[in-house]
């Protein structure tokens, strides 16, 4: 009897879980579907007619592709700066004892707990009062700011889980500190740094709220979508949405496969 009820309980739970996953994926399916749609009018969100045109000419509305390129540039710059700054901080926090540690921890934690709206408006207030013209570079500055904390926690997690005896062994074998860092520490932390960089890029690429307050007249991809939502969305937006999904999915699958192979070798 308990067996049957447990079997039912298991299946019941899995059923609910799959339904919730369905809810999570429904919009993705719709985005993918709409990327093959020829809308009946500019302001229509309904499926009208199948076409491959959107995929064949994704840049038919050139403003949109300009915005995508700009988002990639901003994402790249913000990722590089945030990853370097955050990795250095993670090393300091995990590897060194120093005064003011808890203050630094609070400074790193707070941006993750502050509503984006507040970070966006406060930066706007600062830039306006300092007379800094808003545009490409103010967006980069803002993105670095909110990405750094996420880089720190990601790299820190990797560093904290590392076996420090490997470095001690290298030093025992007369490796200099620099050699130990280059040959042992860095390769071991690298997956954490790469994960942090990918996270930073995706946060930057998808950010709307903070960007909206600090963009001036510069248009990133989310800003373009926001503006177009009022004027009518070109179907190519869904092509970009679907492509983003596929690229990210491929990256995740590739890293999972690599991880699995690495596990088999060790």
């Amino acid at each position: 009897m308990t067996r049957i009820s447990r079997w039912l309980a298991d299946r019941w739970l899995m059923g609910v879980a799959l339904l919730v996953l369905g809810y999570l994926f429904l919009p993705i399916a719709v985005v993918a579907g709409l990327s093959f749609n020829r809308p009946s009018s500019r302001l229509s969100y309904d499926f009208n007619e199948f076409t491959l045109d959107n995929w064949r000419r994704p840049c038919a509305t050139s403003d949109m592709c300009d915005a995508v390129v700009r988002s990639v540039q901003i994402g790249f710059l913000a990722t590089v700066v945030a990853t370097v700054l955050g990795t250095l901080m993670a090393f300091a926090l995990v590897r060194h004892r120093f005064r003011g540690r808890s203050g630094i921890n609070v400074l790193i934690f707070l941006p993750m707990a502050t509503p984006e709206l507040v970070m966006g408006t406060s930066l706007l207030a600062l830039f306006v009062s300092a007379g800094v013209p808003q545009g490409f570079w103010t967006i980069v500055i803002a993105h670095v700011m909110f990405c750094v904390s996420f880089v720190v926690v990601t790299v820190k997690a990797r560093l904290a889980g590392m076996d420090s005896r490997l470095e001690e062994a290298a030093m025992d074998l007369y490796a200099s500190e620099w050699q130990t860092f280059r040959r042992i520490t860095l390769p071991l932390v690298l997956p954490g740094i790469v994960a942090a960089a990918l996270l930073a890029f995706s946060l930057s690429f998808d950010d709307f709220i903070i960007t909206n307050f600090n963009a001036g007249t510069t248009v990133t991809f989310p800003m373009y979508v926001w503006g177009a939502a009022q004027r009518g969305i070109p179907p190519q937006v869904n092509v970009i949405g679907t492509a983003m999904f596929l690229i990210a999915l491929l990256l995740v699958l590739a890293s999972t496969l690599r991880g699995r192979r690495a596990k088999r070798f060790s």
Binding site: F25, L26, I28, D206, I240, F245
Partner: peptide
């Protein structure tokens, strides 16, 4: 991965999909 995957697409594009 399936839980995180929907976030791979732009926040705004996903929200617009709910309009459809």
């Amino acid at each position: 991965v399936c839980v995180v995957a929907p976030m791979f697409t732009s926040f705004l594009v996903r929200t617009l999909a709910w309009k459809t």
